[in-house]
Design a binder for these strands. Structure first.
Lengths: 199, 199, 199, 199
DNA sequence: CATGAATGAGTTTTCATTCAT
DNA sequence: CATGAATGAAAACTCATTCAT
């Protein structure tokens, strides 16, 4: 990469990090492109040299985060192969990136069709891993035989609910952090066949 | 009621029904007061004679629906006293009013503070009934001993998730209708202590 | 006057007193006819049975006040025939009705042509008396020989200035009350030929 | 200055001159931002690129005029140090800018607090110079020993009065021009100790 | 490559007056 | 006589995107 490309790359990263900060603070919908440009220290028009439209910014940001999460989840999925573990790991990751996930949960219905489709696709991949491990748990006689899709919707729906209404659950700090343990233990209690039942 | 009061009442109802129709089609946030007035066949200013502000319209509409639901739920709560029944009834009601509930689920984070608070308060009352019956079920040894709040968030979170992303689950028709049976049976399967386990 | 007429008269007075109160508080321009009707306990439309238009209300109110002032000034003009006395009396009266005069001073440029003309006509009559007495003072060798019209504009201009910008001179209470003594003594000092000069 | 900066400057000046023209014709309060944009030959939104709010326009316009006046007054204040001269100069300047000063005199009570404060502050500076020179005149035994503040309020109050009711004093042309000589000579006659009195 | 000036459609609410009841 | 529902014009400000410089 020559010097010019490096500079361009740096500018792009500056835009992304500033945009992310603003999206977290004010939401994607209520952040203006000039604010982002001003925060990144570039001209308003320059923003559009790096990103063809405002939506491509949120796509890039969410894509990066979702990739990180997938990457962080990968080893857990590969090795442990235990739903409980992956749930815990997933929630830790969501908590880490909660600010931007909260924005996404609230605003997704208002994004353009394509953007929304892409984001949901990323979600679906992660959900796929949960599905596989859930199925395994059922096959292994650990989990009850329930409709996995629906059971997972209970799980992800609750996460989505906490995130999208975060403001009413916590004043400051993390919703997921606050409810994580309860979510995990209750979800486990619901899907797991108790040891005592086996006897 | 004299003729003028009747006429006023009629105008008000016309506004409400047209507004509801538009809110369902385009969302509350993207419906303009002019559109509503035009649809209702009244002058733009007349709208504000009946409703002091745009938000009071959505409040009235949602309040009416939520009241209807509470009223319809009341006898089921009083007599049957069975969570399963109330869940079924609740979902039937949500399905009936699904269009407006979908709008509410999507947009609530963007409503003004007071409006949101009022809507959440209504939700909380209904949720309270679920809680009571869930507790009863646990006391009766029918349901597993889990954290009720969290378990209910799984349930309501899933409903919320289906409603807010309705557009990606169904093209036309009802999401709740589509998933109702799975929701009910899966939720039951998760919380109920199987008969065989008892032996 | 029969009973019906009496009732009508009473309603009219109620309207006037409520309107005056509101005009003082919020200004004529920012008081709405519905507010006045509500304050007077009558229907909005009823207001227009008593007063053909909003402006006729301010006219009536100002007319009454200006008449009162003229009436109160009359004996002073007739008997004493001394500018100093009439100035003092006039300022006392303005102070008494300062709230409504402040509104008038601020808003007059925005009144309709006819209303403004009528109000200015009333002012002119009072000013006429000042003129006469000023002239007498000059003839008597008490006051300097200056252009009376302009000298009076200094006086009335200052009053007008204090009234129209009342809000910046006093927080609560009377501007005229605050500056009355200075106005009188300074105006006197300016127009009076000092005793010592005569010798 | 490069071409773009020049173009921007030109647009800004066009806005200011058109706005000033309109403010003079119809008053600031009754001129709309659309009208200004149309008159300046720019898009409505462009106006807000140059001025964040309508009030900032009147502020800029009045500031420029008041600065010009202060600048024009400066040498007179510095050198001559004579109240009579500064009065004459001041009235000439007011006459020059009479149209906009008339609007200001009429509308100031209705401007936002901050704008009004700023305008009054400018006025106060100029008044300060009058005060100084008046005091000097008293010290030099030229002017009578009167309360300067009040005497100046007679002067400025009269100017304000003529300006705010300009429409009733002249049909076309300048009020200040019409009454300037009388104002000056009368004010002088009132404050000056006659030569004959000294003997 | 970067800049930043220009675009222009879009929306809630107010209020004096009228007239059918 | 009194009522009060209906009228409808009017106005400031935002912001993603473009394109001449």
């Amino acid at each position: 990469m020559n010097k010019r490309q490096k500079q361009k790359q740096k500018t792009r990263e500056k835009i992304v990090s500033c945009a992310k900060e603003l999206f977290i603070q004010k939401g994607f919908l209520h952040t203006t492109t000039s604010e982002i440009a001003a925060a990144a220290g570039i001209a308003h028009g320059t923003l559009f040299l790096h990103f063809p439209a405002k939506e491509s910014l949120i796509l890039e940001i969410m894509d990066t985060v979702l990739e990180q999460i997938q990457a962080a989840l990968q080893p857990v999925i590969a090795h442990a192969g235990n739903l409980d573990e992956i749930i815990r790991c997933y929630l830790d990751l969501i908590e880490q990136h909660e600010a931007i996930f909260s924005t996404k949960a609230r605003e997704m219905p208002f994004y353009g069709d394509e953007l929304r489709r892409k984001l949901l696709f990323r979600d679906a991949i992660i959900r796929g891993h949960f599905h596989t491990l859930f199925q395994q748990g059922i096959d292994d006689g650990i989990y009850r035989q329930v409709d996995i899709q629906t059971a997972l919707t209970f799980f992800f729906g609750a996460i989505h609910y906490y995130l999208s209404l975060k403001q009413i659950f916590v004043v400051d700090g993390s919703v997921i952090g606050k409810f994580k343990d309860q979510i995990i233990s209750t979800f486990n209690a619901l899907i797991t066949i108790p040891k005592t039942e086996e006897s």
